[in-house]
Nucleic acid binder design. Structure first.
Length: 201
DNA sequence: CAAGAGATCATCT
DNA sequence: GATGATCTCTTGA
């Protein structure tokens, strides 16, 4: 195993759209139960600030959204539809509420364990969606507010030198935000072209 | 296959 | 009291 290192805070303090794009090809790692789950990020969405009507923080600072006002590099995890967890990484400067949603992964390590967590044998169905990948990786709300960039972080992102060329990055509309007015049509979803783990074409 | 319904709870009005 | 940054299962063509 080559030695990898966690991505540092300055990476997440760039413009949200930039972070969303640059996260493609990076590797999400979760250490839990004596196991190290990992997967390559193949799809993300940017929630770019208080003016973005799809961003939860467009409603202002509340108990749920205040984590987005922290400095980039902190996890924002919340429950949706009563049964799925969403994994987001907070971006940009302190007091500027924005984040990137990790929508899909290509599984790398602990695939057998993911099959158990997901109750399916189909590799393509393990992490091809943000509700799915949270289940597969055992990600829950206990990770909300935790840092992705400290040495003791159990959930973090590594660069393992997977190359993603600019012409392989597809821009698309975000999913499931029909309530967001003109913001529902902005091209703030990014995915790796032709990757089979992307959740929607 | 596509379309529709049901699951199930934290959050905000 | 309503509604989601979803997924799965069932139904019917």
């Amino acid at each position: 195993m080559t030695k990898h290192h966690k991505i540092t805070p300055d990476f997440f303090q760039q413009k949200t759209e930039t972070v969303a794009k640059k996260l493609l090809g990076k590797v999400l790692v979760h250490k839990i139960d004596n196991k190290i789950y990992s997967g390559k990020i193949v799809e993300t969405e940017a929630y770019v600030g208080p003016h973005d009507l799809a961003c939860h923080a467009s409603k202002g600072k509340t108990n749920r959204t205040q984590v987005m006002y922290l400095e980039g590099g902190v996890w924002y995890v919340y429950m949706i539809y009563g049964m799925y967890f969403n994994l987001n990484i907070v971006t940009e400067a302190k007091e500027y509420p924005s984040a990137v949603l990790i929508r899909a992964l290509e599984p790398l390590e602990e695939i057998e364990e993911m099959k158990i967590n997901r109750k399916t044998d189909k590799i393509l169905n393990l992490t091809s969606g943000h509700g799915k990948l949270a289940r597969a990786f055992k990600i829950d709300k206990s990770l909300n507010y935790t840092s992705a960039t400290e040495s003791e972080s159990v959930l973090f992102i590594e660069d393992r030198n997977f190359k993603v060329l600019n012409n392989q990055i597809v821009k698309a509309k975000r999913i499931g935000i029909d309530y967001a007015g003109i913001w529902k049509d902005k091209l703030l979803r990014f995915y790796i072209k032709d990757n089979p783990f992307v959740s929607k074409k």
